[in-house]
Design a protein around this nucleic acid. Structure first.
Lengths: 172, 172
DNA sequence: TATTGTTATACTCTATAACTATA
DNA sequence: TATAGTTATAGAGTATAACAATA
């Protein structure tokens, strides 16, 4: 919208068509076409693995807590892009399943501190391994070049879309 | 697991560690880290836009029907990776909202033919435009090089994860 | 009064099981 | 009997609104 100013004329002229604008729109279309399909694959893998049996939000919650130091519920909600009630319900389930601990913060009794149980850590690790293995199997058809390209692109994407537009959590 | 055979020794040795295996695992980890965040962004954008107000599955259903020729419910379910009941419910909603048409196939009365209403086509188009614009805004911070790289990677990803591992639908 | 959570309510997504209708 | 869908049921994800507790 405000990056470059060169108009390309051998491409369909779009509103506000600039070099960057066109490339950005192409990326946006690609994302819309491919991300839901990948997500569906991830979800099905997560749910399929017998021992772990996690939904994607559950898994993400476990990962976040495992990488943080006794985070509050709000911190988790913000990181995952969830409303506070949604986060609260999510934690309910994980606590009920014995994967997460929740206790009132002694310093500020409004806050809640989240932590993983030993079982939570193990489950998280198993789910990650199984899902990564399934994803990796799909990737093994690709050439080394394509893999390198995808790997770099994912880093860029993760950075651009991390909660708040800031840092990307790196899983493993 | 069965691609290359060279063992790399200056990288942490993983089980079955091959050139391809390691790169594939790196991609898998990247996907797990970035795709859910991107998905969340897409979902929030889809739901935020006043006129359209579609969930991601609803949008995907509209896109699929718009690109197919009076597809059956089963075809849609398979393409979207949904169970038949889930697809049926999804269509219920879209029909009730006046976005999709559903009629019994005269040739085989067990089948159902799906189509978009004029309003469905318009809604689909609006939702796509609004969401792509929001995504593109995120992308405009990136350099032209990064955009090109991401664009190519998304093509590869879409292909690798299209339903059945086959073709990827291209949205616009 | 502002912040942190939880509860209440309502919808959507999704699966499995049981069923209906058609071929 | 096999195929295409629907209905029944259940649980998870998610939001907004209303509430409670603490600072």
């Amino acid at each position: 919208m405000h990056g470059g100013v060169h108009i390309i004329s051998n491409v369909q002229p779009l509103r506000h068509a600039t070099v960057d604008g066109i490339a950005a729109r192409r990326c946006a279309a690609g994302l819309l076409a491919s991300v839901p399909a990948v997500m569906r694959f991830i979800r099905q893998e997560m749910r399929a693995h017998r021992q772990a049996q996690l939904s994607v939000p559950q898994f993400r919650a476990l990962v976040f807590v495992s990488l943080s130091d006794e985070p509050s519920l709000s911190a988790m909600a913000e990181h995952l892009g969830l409303s506070l009630p949604a986060a609260s319900r999510l934690v309910d389930l994980l606590v009920k399943r014995g994967l997460m601990g929740r206790r009132v913060d002694v310093a500020d009794r409004r806050r809640v501190s989240l932590s993983l149980t030993a079982r939570g850590r193990a489950t998280c690790r198993r789910a990650r391994r199984a899902t990564q293995a399934a994803l990796a199997r799909r990737f093994e058809r690709l050439s080394a070049q394509d893999l390198a390209l995808v790997s770099r692109a994912l880093g860029i994407l993760g950075h651009a879309f991390a909660a708040g537009g800031g840092r990307a959590e790196t899983v493993e």
